[in-house]
C-alpha cells in the first residue's frame, strides 16, 4: 500500500514522541482510524509574550508523508507574523522541497525526510519566540511586531489569557 510507508513512519514517530516527549510539546493522531491527522499542543516558550499559553494545532500529513511535508494549522487565534489569520503556519521547514518559486528561502531550510514531527513542533516553538518578519504570513502582525513591539506583546498576552479563560 502506498501509504504503508507513511503510516509506518508516522506510527514510529508517534511512539518516539510519546516515549520521550520534548519539553512543552505533545502530539498524536486525533483518532485511531486516521493516522494522517494529528493534533498537537504547544506551550508558549518562556520569556516571550506567549509564555503560559497552550496552543492547540492540527497537523495534516500527505499520503507520501516523509517525502512531502505536512501542513500545520493552529486551532486557536494566534497573533503572530508567521501564522496566517486562518491559523495556517508558514515556516520554511513546512514547505515542500524543490525550487522555491519566489527564490526567497534557501533550499536547505526546507522540508526533507530528515525532518520529523518533533522537529517541526520545535521549530514552531522557536518561531513563536523569534518571529521572522521577512516573509510574513500575517502582515498586520508583522508590522505591529516590527514597529510597536509593546503593543504586539500586550495583544499576545491578552489573547493568551483569553485562551486560558482568565480574561
Amino acid at each position: 500500500m502506498a501509504s504503508s510507508l507513511a503510516s509506518r513512519r508516522l506510527f514510529q514517530e508517534y511512539r518516539t514522541l510519546t516515549s520521550s516527549p520534548p519539553d512543552g510539546i505533545t502530539a498524536g493522531p486525533v483518532s485511531e482510524d486516521d493516522i494522517f491527522l494529528w493534533e498537537a499542543l504547544i506551550q508558549g516558550p518562556e520569556g516571550t509574550p506567549f509564555e503560559g499559553g497552550v496552543f492547540p494545532a492540527e497537523l495534516k500529513f500527505p499520503k507520501d508523508y516523509p517525502l512531502n511535508p505536512p501542513s500545520m494549522k493552529f486551532l486557536c487565534d494566534i497573533w503572530h507574523p508567521n501564522v496566517y489569520p486562518t491559523g495556517l503556519v508558514c515556516i520554511s521547514i513546512l514547505h515542500a522541497p524543490g525550487e522555491d518559486p519566489n527564490h526567497y528561502e534557501q533550499a536547505s531550510e526546507r522540508w526533507s525526510p530528515i525532518q520529523s514531527v518533533e522537529k517541526i513542533l520545535i521549530s514552531v516553538m522557536s518561531m513563536l519566540a523569534e518571529p521572522n518578519d521577512e516573509s510574513p504570513a500575517n502582515v498586520e502582525a508583522a508590522k505591529m511586531w516590527r514597529e510597536k513591539r509593546g503593543m504586539f506583546e500586550e495583544r499576545v498576552r491578552k489573547s493568551v489569557r483569553e485562551g486560558l479563560g482568565l480574561a
Binding site: 510507508l5 517525502l67 512531502n68 533550499a107 526533507s112 525526510p113 530528515i114
Partner: peptide, 18 residues
C-alpha cells in the same frame, strides 16, 4: 533501496545533506 527510489522520484538530491 525503495525509500531512496521514491525520494528520487521527487528530488535528485541527498535527503540528509542535499
Amino acid at each position: 533501496f525503495a525509500c531512496l527510489r521514491s525520494w528520487l522520484e521527487r528530488q535528485q538530491i541527498c535527503p540528509t545533506c542535499r
